Amino acid sequence: MDHSISTSRLIRKYKNSDLDAVLKCWESAFRLAHPFIEEAFVAKVRVDIPALYIPNAETWVCEERDLVVGFISLMGNEIAALFVDPKKHGQGNGRALVDKACAIREGKITVEVFELNMIGRKFYKTYGFEYRDQYVFEDVGETVLKLTLNESQLST
């Protein structure tokens, strides 16, 4: 098995031609991390990503060997979306995307994550995000945690 993926990783601005790959990454990663979310909400978000979210966010993709394996969308200083193809989890792609966000937002980054999303919570905790607040997301009736990056945790 070739473990030299870090040398072939590229973080670049989203292009319209990336939409299908971004949706594929989103759906597989979302379903894995959010089994508690009902199908009707997933279907709504699938429509909203190209119609609302992508046009109103700054999106970057993670590409390996010319294939999109993940993406991050920023709205101001907030990570509005961070999804990596589950087959590519644990290989540094999510970290590379958040590193990019930190570089362009000078480390002042926040994120909201469902309390039941244990995959996302573990990732953000390991990265250095800390609990700030919480609320119930009425559309799905689930608790969302608001996290802020502890800038003293930044490795750069």
Rank of each mutant, 00 (worst) to 15 (best):
W60E: 11
P50R: 08
T126C: 09
F71Y: 12
E39A: 09
V111D: 03
N117I: 03
N150D: 15
F123K: 01
I72Q: 06
Y124P: 05
K87Y: 00
Y124K: 07
A101T: 02
G76I: 08
G92I: 10
A57Y: 01
Q91Y: 09
K100W: 15
K146P: 07
F129L: 00
N56C: 06
A103T: 12
L97I: 02
S152K: 15
D18W: 01
Y131N: 06
F36Q: 12
L23M: 10
E142Y: 07
L10E: 12
Y124G: 09
G90A: 10
Q153V: 10
N16M: 02
S73T: 06
L67T: 07
L145F: 15
L32R: 04
K87A: 02
V68F: 07
G94L: 07
G90N: 05
N77G: 03
V47A: 15
G76F: 08
A21I: 03
A43T: 13
D85V: 03
V136E: 03
L32N: 00
D48L: 13
V68Q: 02
T126S: 13
A57G: 03
V113A: 09
W26D: 00
I54T: 11
R65D: 10
L82G: 00
G107I: 03
A51Q: 14
Y135L: 07
K13D: 10
E64L: 14
N117D: 13
T156C: 15
I49T: 08
E78R: 15
I79N: 02
I72R: 08
K15P: 00
L67G: 05
T148P: 01
Q153R: 15
L23H: 01
P86F: 08
K122A: 06
Y131T: 05
V61E: 00
D18I: 00
K15D: 02
E138K: 14
E38Y: 12
A101F: 08
D133S: 15
P55K: 11
E38T: 13
M75Y: 10
L149E: 14
S73N: 07
A101G: 09
K87I: 01
G141A: 09
V98D: 06
L74F: 06
E63R: 04
F83M: 03
R132L: 07
A51T: 13
G141T: 08
I72V: 15
I79Q: 06
G120C: 12
G90D: 09
L145G: 12
V42Q: 05
Q91N: 11
R12C: 14
L32W: 01
V144R: 13
V84N: 04
D66N: 14
S73C: 05
I37K: 06
F123D: 00
K146C: 13
M75F: 13
F123Q: 01
Y131S: 03
E138D: 11
P35V: 08
T148N: 07
P50A: 09
L19A: 07
L149V: 12
R105M: 14
C25P: 05
S152V: 14
L82A: 00
